[in-house]
Design a protein around this nucleic acid. Structure first.
Lengths: 223, 223
DNA sequence: GTCTATATGGGGATAGAC
DNA sequence: GTCTATCCCCATATAGAC
């Protein structure tokens, strides 16, 4: 208290340590999963001793949940349909670009979510309702596009999930991509190429091929 | 030796135990990953004691590698482009159906592979060359389709990887699908619906939209 | 805040009785 | 083949000196 009148230096040092811990924990949890990760390895990656780590965190489980929340928050913030756009091409392109960029930039954070889902998703119990709610908004817009004949009739919810799956792939299976396609880490050109291929696949995939001259069409999907 | 002249009963009992162990290990490894899984839990799931388990297996690592090989073998056998078919629609539909069916029927086995990739894929070192070889065959056929104008120009390798990603999704994220879409476990109707949606998305996604009346087209993808 | 030392529990694996 | 008991190591977490 007394030796920290500015309230700056100590706090900054503490937060830098916490950042190191977070980065280390993200790497460790995303690789080994919650059960496979060890506080020992996290401490080592963060450049501190194990006892020191436990001085900064409440426990392994609390640290894990904190990071899980972080992914969910970022996704909730960034990965949305842009409401200022209206045409399917623009909305979907933007969405794909955002989600893919996150997969490229923060693959480990993305993988924590995947690892948790693989483990049964017990730590996501509170998250599913919110996620489903989130998808409903997108679903409604897509339904509108179908009614307006802007895209072909399809199962809107599955369509969203498929886009999510395709973009998530580049985080979860980065190792596979690297081996089967070649390295593309910081290469902007390769990233743009992938974004383009995914976007085209999706946009073509929902296009109406031979739209009957001008008549309303119904959605055939009944799921 | 002497009390087993038929060579049957004992062997059968042994193999039944081994099957139980395999099933238990698949469940455990797919949930927790290699590091997170414990022989304790595997034994418990198999209905035997831990010491008993170690009588049947060479070690945790050997058991894990055995199961990994199992997935790779099944994929190598089942998930191929059918050479008796030739049209893109038929080949891709069949491929998607096979891969999706495996995701539905053996999700845990599929997830072991995913978990291993998430962990860095160190146990797959020998597998990548074979997998890449496998993809090259498909790639050549797709290139042919492009030259023949049967599908639009696209990056063939990424296209294959995207189909793989979409079908793998239903194994890895089964929990997510269940929460956001509803249960679809043994429901044949729902399975067929999903197969249909994925197939249509892919087939439309690679269709040529406004093919110029009749002229060869070049492949623009240079990756 | 940071260290060494340690408490306590669980991990993989084996010995040896039955 | 199956059990109990055990070895030895590593896990999470804390105590307490500095």
């Amino acid at each position: 208290m007394m030796n920290n009148e500015t309230g700056g230096k100590v706090r900054v040092a503490r937060e830098r340590t916490l950042e190191n811990i977070h980065a280390a924990a993200i790497a460790e949890f995303s690789e080994k999963g919650f059960q496979g990760a060890t506080t020992q390895a996290i401490a080592q990656r963060a450049g501190i001793k194990k006892a020191q780590l436990h001085y900064y965190i409440a426990g392994k489980e609390e640290l894990y949940e904190e990071l899980l929340q972080k992914v969910l928050k970022v996704w909730g913030d960034i990965i949305q349909f842009d409401p200022t756009l209206s045409e399917p091409e623009a909305v979907l392109s933007r969405y794909i670009r955002n989600k893919l960029s996150f997969s490229f930039d923060q693959p480990e954070l993305s993988r924590i979510f995947t690892s948790e889902v693989l483990s049964g998703g017990h730590y996501l119990q509170k998250y599913w309702p919110q996620a489903t709610q989130n998808i409903v908004g997108k679903e409604n817009l897509i339904h509108q596009w179908i009614v307006e004949g802007k895209i072909r009739p399809l199962d809107a919810r599955l369509f969203i999930m498929h886009i999510w799956a395709l973009t998530q792939y580049y985080a979860d299976f980065a190792v596979q991509v690297k081996h089967m396609y070649g390295n593309f880490g910081g290469d902007t050109q390769a990233r743009e190429h992938i974004i383009g291929e995914v976007t085209t696949l999706i946009l073509n995939g929902c296009k109406d091929f031979a739209p009957p001259p001008s008549q309303g069409r119904e959605q055939t999907s009944d799921f």
